[in-house]
Design a protein around this nucleic acid. Structure first.
Lengths: 203, 203
DNA sequence: TTGACAAACTTAACAGCGTTAAGTATTTTT
DNA sequence: AAAAATACTTAACGCTGTTAAGTTTGTCAA
């Protein structure tokens, strides 16, 4: 008895409701600690209902990360808009990336730190064609600009971009992951690695 | 009927047998994909037997990583012994770290990439006082030496060491984690980040 | 020789997990 | 009013880490 619920706008809204509940839980407790049953309970539906809207748990996660990383790309673009030159633009982009990762540890973790663990199985994950890729491309073109302007040593753009990426990913993941470790203040560490790398790659 | 087994040296040897089986499986398939039942099956005992020798699954992992990271520290020390000077010594140490991580992706993952996920619960993990810490200390003293010798800009040793660590951890974890991504050849990327950082931190 | 006791290991079970197949209401269409 | 489509649920499968209780064996004393 009583199946149809007095939900505001049915149909498409339940999909959003699931997504919202899952996002909140993932961000608060981490992907592994959140079960489908928990998500279902929170929105007052049976666990299997989720499977009517999403293929499996990892697809839920993927959708959430997709939108989260639009935000990352947007934040990078926005921070770069205030730049005074190509090098400052690059620097701002790098720092924004790090800050984003530090402010959204669970999202960052899911997409950049352990995608293997999370996105295995049926729907295999590829970095290519989505998510973090756009953010990385922004970095690549920023590097190219700097080289063209002669403020960064000319060379393999891909190699240089990946070198930067390694650096900023390193700080972010390290600080997020090793709670107990006595890191120096994270903003100091962030600027240290960014400025060190820029200095090391100047002409 | 027939419980006592014709095992070579009982008692302490079964502990080693479990450890060996677990190590092989973890390295081959990754921590999450290996169940206690799988480990037990491989050595021909019931799953619960493992709990007579280890508190839980994460302790098994911890023991394995402990010995693995003795090896890392040893390899770093050994590679540094051939160095021609303080800066070369630092450089060798950094590259050895990266190579170790690339050759032992699962071990590296467990200790440096996602310790939070693996070491939660009953026995809480701390980086402090074990494992990776000794490797990090080697790096720190190498940095201090370089500063003293005047081949690295003088400044906060901790900050500089952590900056290096972020860099080498970045390459290692990135390459290990993002299978699909078109990275440049990993040795090239490794030397790129190491040399970039050293260049950026010279006097 | 017998009985007690400890050591080493196993069986059965619990509560949880992601996921699927089948079933039940309710609404819409014909 | 009958049929079909929609939206959801119940029950179950096979898996997980882990615990409690039971069973077999070896040791040692009386």
């Amino acid at each position: 008895m009583s199946s149809r619920r007095p939900k505001p706008e049915h149909k498409e809204s339940l999909r959003e409701e699931i997504l919202d509940a899952a996002r909140e839980l993932f961000v608060a407790e981490g992907y592994e600690s959140v079960s489908m049953r928990k998500i279902a309970e929170r929105i007052g539906y049976s666990p299997t209902t989720i499977y009517l809207y999403f293929k499996d748990k990892s697809e839920l996660l993927r959708q959430i990360c997709e939108s989260t990383f639009e935000r990352l790309a947007d934040e990078i673009v926005e921070s770069q808009s205030k730049a005074t030159g190509p090098l400052d633009k690059l620097r701002r982009g790098l720092l924004t990336y790090i800050n984003f990762g530090l402010k959204n540890p669970h999202h960052y973790d899911v997409v950049f730190v352990s995608p293997k663990v999370r996105f295995m199985g049926p729907t295999e994950y590829s970095f290519d064609g989505s998510m973090g890729q756009r953010a990385f491309e922004l970095l690549g073109s920023s590097v190219a600009e700097c080289m063209a302007a002669g403020v960064l040593r000319k060379g393999d753009v891909a190699l240089t971009a990946q070198t930067f990426w390694a650096g900023i990913h390193g700080v972010t993941s390290l600080v997020n992951t090793h709670d107990g470790f006595p890191f120096v203040e994270s903003e100091r560490l962030a600027t240290s690695i960014v400025d060190t790398m820029i200095a090391g790659l100047e002409p």
